[in-house]
């Protein structure tokens, strides 16, 4: 008869954002986490790290997002942060044709240092600066689709951090891709029965647990993620690790 259950726990995922310097990686992160656009131009020094809680399809997630410096001189210094990633966003700018061409180099750098199976890792290609005038656009949709087809990247989305367009959708897309690949991995494990490959780390959903507290609620996105991001008013960057609320006695609701 008791309704006492352990408190809901969110899954912890690590997201890394890669791309040439100046394509808008940090702006993407700031818009997603703090729903703010920074007009001042600045360069990321090495790495930058932020947290974001999100609810997708009824599941609660905590995203640990690492934004990296795109300049070449930081290469030796940023690569150690690639390991342990669950999702990788490959960013280019719609007004910079070369930044799309460079995505291949970024993907290879990530695969080299993160040590993941390239066929089973969720890459999301994100085209930033979707708000620019049409005449400034240098990258066509066909070009991106062709690149994705060649590189076997399944997901691509265009965003605008300035106009708050599709920013959350990009991360939700990554989440869904990750969940899909996790399901596939579990199915494969069941198919192999008792055989477990000990040479590779086993990624099980149940093991990734991070308590966010029942009282803390980040901005959530409903089942339908096609809405305008401007309508989503996040109360600001959520401070991770709010004091955990004690479990409540279940409410009795009997009818005679």
């Amino acid at each position: 008869m008791t309704n006492m259950r352990p408190p809901q726990k969110s899954k912890l995922l690590k997201v890394v954002i890669l791309g040439d310097g100046g394509v808008g990686k940090s702006a993407l992160l700031t818009r997603f986490v703090a729903n703010r656009y920074e007009e001042n131009n600045f360069h990321t020094i090495g790495v930058e790290f932020m947290n974001k809680d999100i609810v997708v399809d009824g599941e609660r997630y905590t995203l640990q997002i690492w934004d990296t410096a795109g300049q070449e001189r930081f290469r030796a210094l940023r690569t150690p942060f690639y390991r342990g990633s669950d999702i990788c966003l490959l960013c280019y700018a719609l007004d910079d044709r070369d930044s799309l061409k460079g995505l291949g180099v970024w993907r290879n750098e990530f695969l080299n240092y993160a040590d993941v199976d390239q066929d089973k890792f969720p890459f999301i290609v994100v085209g930033n600066k979707n708000d620019i005038p049409a005449q400034k656009r240098q990258v066509s949709s066909d070009a991106v689709q062709q690149w994705c087809a060649e590189q076997k990247v399944a997901c691509h989305i265009e965003t605008s951090s300035k106009a708050a367009t599709n920013v959350t959708d990009a991360f939700v897309l990554g989440l869904r891709q990750w969940r899909h690949m996790e399901c596939v991995a579990e199915a494969e494990l069941r198919q192999h029965g008792d055989t477990i490959d000990l040479t590779r780390p086993i990624r099980l959903v149940q093991r990734r647990i991070c308590c966010t507290g029942g009282g803390g609620g980040g901005g959530g996105v409903g089942q339908d993620a096609d809405g305008d991001d401007a309508a989503m008013h996040s109360p600001g960057k959520k401070v991770f690790g709010q004091k955990r609320n004690a479990s409540k006695a279940p409410a009795t609701n009997y009818r005679l």
Binding site: S26, E38, F42, T44, I45, F49, M50, F240
Partner: peptide, 20 residues
């Protein structure tokens, strides 16, 4: 501004670990 973002990154990493 850039220094503050760096400080925020380190602070967030520490807070995550403490909370975990």
């Amino acid at each position: 501004l850039e220094a503050e973002r760096c400080a925020s990154t380190i602070k967030t990493v520490i807070e995550n670990a403490l909370d975990t």
